[in-house]
């Protein structure tokens, strides 16, 4: 699926194009053999489709509550049971999944945009620009970001936007480092020198030749970042700093479920399964992609 699209970004024909084509198809072939990764991919696609279509698919409206019903275990009317306000858990889970996935994807996207831009510029120009930019990254790395995010969430009115930004602002650092290393590698390749000689502008070179080649490691990192972000959102929810009701997220559902786990275990089990399954899947997919794109086992990338 990805290989065609990505290959088409590759404007130079000849050897490099061939090389790119074969790299991606090779990777895809490898990935297809990795059952866990394919399972992960399937789950992610499934979850995403459900999340997108939730307003059409959910068995009950999001706000529907039935106080007299209260919390009941799974039944024919409520497949996953109801919560203490008599709200259908499946419905809550579907809407919560939308939020969790959105936070995961959007915050990662923020990190992605900043990280790629920063890393590419630093890596491409090198020299003093690179030194200065990466020194800033080093400095930011040493900040206790968790503490700042908590402070931010306590201090300011909570909003989705703030949540994305806050988490994205932490995650872009690693992204920038990865991209920079990759860009420096590619810059030394011959076809870039060739492009420079043919008189392409720097912008064209960066966006048309370098960026596409950075995508491999970035995808790997993204699949490993999203679960981290989703966990962090859950963690903020535990502190009461997550999304606003009546919206909820898997993190909110789990931290609510923990409180009543002895009386109403289903309120913990199903959100727990949903979150863990998604995190598992993303991790498996990330591992699979890493193996597929790089024949040797790399050791970095789990940090932080």
């Amino acid at each position: 699926m990805n290989n065609k699209m990505l290959a088409s970004h590759h404007p130079l024909d000849g050897q490099d194009g061939e090389y790119g084509q074969s790299l991606w198809s090779l990777a895809w072939a490898k990935l297809r053999k990795n059952k866990l990764a394919m399972f992960g991919l399937g789950v992610i696609v499934f979850m995403t489709i459900i999340a997108v279509l939730t307003p059409l698919l959910s068995p009950y409206p999001q706000e529907a509550q039935d106080l007299t019903l209260g919390a009941v275990p799974p039944s024919a009317a409520h497949w996953l049971g109801t919560d203490t306000l008599g709200r259908d858990l499946l419905t809550r889970l579907m809407y919560g999944g939308r939020v969790s996935l959105l936070v995961g994807f959007a915050a990662t996207a923020v990190a992605l945009v900043i990280g790629i831009l920063w890393g590419t510029i630093a890596g491409y120009f090198g020299g003093i620009i690179d030194a200065a930019m990466m020194r800033i990254v080093d400095i930011l790395y040493a900040l206790p970001f968790m503490i700042f995010v908590i402070l931010l969430m306590v201090v300011f009115e909570r909003s989705f936007l703030l949540l994305f930004l806050a988490i994205g602002l932490i995650e872009w650092l690693t992204m920038a480092r990865i991209v920079r290393a990759q860009v420096m590698n590619i810059r030394r390749q011959e076809y870039i020198s060739a492009a420079v000689v043919t008189g392409l502008s720097r912008r064209q070179i960066i966006f048309r030749h370098i960026m596409p080649n950075v995508i491999g490691p970035v995808i790997v990192y993204v699949t490993l970042t999203i679960p981290g972000v989703m966990l962090f959102e859950a963690f903020l929810s535990f502190l009461g700093l997550g999304v606003q009701p009546p919206a909820s997220s898997w993190g909110v559902l789990i931290s609510d479920g923990v409180e009543t786990m002895e009386e109403y275990p289903w309120l913990l089990i199903f959100p727990g399964i949903a979150l863990s399954l998604t995190l598992f899947s993303l991790n498996f997919l990330g591992d699979g992609l890493r193996d597929a794109l790089d024949p040797r086992t790399t050791v970095d990338g789990d940090g932080g």
């Binding site: 203490t84 009701p245 009546p246």
Partner: peptide, 8 residues
């Protein structure tokens, strides 16, 4: 929980 109930 009370706010959510009253909202409804």
């Amino acid at each position: 929980r009370i706010a959510e109930a009253i909202q409804q």
